[in-house]
Design a protein around this nucleic acid. Structure first.
Lengths: 334, 334
DNA sequence: TTGTAGGCGTTATCAT
DNA sequence: ATGATAACGCCTACAA
């Protein structure tokens, strides 16, 4: 068995209560005593049992992150941002990836209850937030919102409108869209981006042709498949809006296969501001992803302090690159 | 306060011991009783206190992953692989990112002791493995090895030799290298790759010019800086070997800035088999990254079963693409 | 400032 | 098949 607080107490010639107070930096401890206890504890290489202290105190020192993916860029980057803040606060990071959308947050709610004192949910399907709130600890959402729940999002509608308007400003009218199947129903980032797309098209008076919508499942491979489907159409789009950069990357792969050049043969734009979008010369609407992770973590910390953080809207910015060349240039290069 | 096992026991008219046995599926419980208890527990929405049961049983149901980064592709992908296996076993995933190499694993060792019953360390600096072993739970290493510790690696020396030999076979002699500063000292994946590079050069009888070595810190941005430094030299290399795909991506960015084309003007190869290496037409030596995560997780599970897994060597394969065009073609395109 | 002791919620041993 | 009841290791009033 490992060293317990009693061993330290005995060795130091004090009570366990004093050891506990001394080691945790609580007041009402003689400096001499504290130092002595600390020394003994160090000598014995004592480490308090997290289970025991958590059981006794009710504090968990742990924040759980619920995310649909660990490997996709957006989520990995958000996680890194969150981890940064938690690490600084010496908090544990418990990761729950819920790849399978069929297994909703209900199990998460039960698994997490009593084990964490904060939860950050990324891209949580709307509605599940209430379940999560049942855990009874501070909650913060990223890429989703819920009434009365702190959140960090971008203005997805606006971002998508901007992206679409950019394509339109270049003279495109047959604009394809690569999104995800569930975008229509859930009010998720995907659905908001769809909405922004619609608004932009409407404003421009361009009729929407849903036959030019393809499902990319928010993955690179999915984006490739989706683009392939679009290219297979007789009335191939002249421009494509992918709801994420990774899907746009996949689309690029497909274009390459078809010996088509993004920007010249088919205009292409995504959303994210992915690390590699610059290298791939992909136009995009960038969002400050790791910052968003950090902000969500801060929201949790603030709630512990009794604060009630307002939902935060992170800024986005259009970054026009080679994949959306002005038509003149595209023609010149052709 | 939440519902406790006692509430369930009282409500079900049995002892807490019976509730515990019934709910955990232990034997020696009347089917009738078990079902009744389960029903009551469900009605009360009872969730056992993890802290209490862990304290009492000594089992933590948690595996910690120690990684240098959460956002870099390799680590995020490894993590996803690990998460997959753990999730299937209903185990908690505790993430410890130790971006700062200056803060060694010692703190990790103390933080983790008693809280986890398995540890997976990714790209752990050699030597720190022993500290981690002090936790006294099954350990598995990814991208590193240590005597008597299960691990999952590729043959880094061989991978680097293959990559370098590939460049040499194309006729290159002035070969630059983008690595990391600490590669020289530590016996890490980086240092092994350096070794493979040396071996290949030696075999080909090409003298090594360390002035053509640049530090890319294993990041995209670092790779860009490194390549810029190489290009600034009067005796610019005709080919560059980046120790990771992400650094190679950065190198590509630099080439682009200098209006140079990978494969035509400067040959370029990396190591990893990054998702986007195909799209970027980057030659690489691919490794099965998420599989490696899965395998490491399996090694931990096996150790629980009393097994002593042998170190695993994952296979790699050279993937030649446009960034290492045969010289003939490169000339033809010029 | 320091010590005493009850309690946190389960598990597991030993009876019954 | 079930029930009592010590641990598990720490925290925290309450006393001293």
């Amino acid at each position: 068995m490992a060293i317990t607080i009693r061993d330290v107490a005995r060795e130091a010639g004090v009570s366990t209560a004093t050891v506990s107070r001394a080691l945790r930096g609580l007041p009402h401890v003689d400096p001499q005593t504290r130092e002595h206890v600390a020394r003994v504890a160090a000598e014995l290489d004592y480490v308090a049992s997290a289970n025991a202290s958590r059981l006794a105190s009710g504090r968990q020192g742990t924040v759980a992150v619920i995310t649909p993916s660990l490997s996709r860029w957006f989520f990995a980057t958000v996680l890194a941002g969150i981890g940064e803040v938690l690490q600084a606060e010496d908090l544990d990071l418990l990761v729950h990836s819920v790849e399978d959308a069929s297994a909703p947050s209900l199990p998460s709610e039960r698994r997490l209850r009593g084990r964490v004192d904060g939860v950050i949910a990324v891209a949580l399907p709307s509605g599940d937030a209430q379940d999560l709130r049942g855990i009874g600890v501070p909650l913060s959402l990223i890429g989703a919102t819920a009434d009365g729940v702190p959140s960090v999002t971008i203005d997805d509608v606006d971002a998508a409108r901007t992206a679409t308007a950019h394509l339109i400003s270049l003279g495109h009218e047959r604009i394809g869209l690569i999104g995800s199947g569930d975008d229509a129903s859930a009010d998720s980032a995907g659905s908001w981006r769809m909405e922004g797309f619609r608004e932009a098209m409407l404003e421009a008076g361009i009729p929407i042709d849903t036959r030019l919508h393809a499902d990319g499942g928010f993955t690179v491979d999915g984006g490739e498949t989706a683009m392939a489907a679009l290219l297979a159409r007789p009335d191939r789009p002249t421009a494509v809006f992918a709801l994420s950069d990774e899907m746009a990357f996949g689309a690029m792969r497909s274009l390459r296969r078809h010996a088509l050049r993004p920007g010249n043969d088919v205009a292409l734009i995504g959303i994210d501001g992915h690390d590699l979008s610059g290298l791939l010369d992909l136009s995009t609407v960038a969002q400050p992803v790791s910052d968003m992770g950090r902000m969500a973590a801060e929201q949790v910390l603030r709630q512990w302090r009794g604060d009630t953080p307002e939902p935060v809207r992170a800024p986005t910015s259009l970054v026009a690159r080679g994949s959306t060349l002005p038509v003149a240039e595209a023609v010149a290069l052709a």
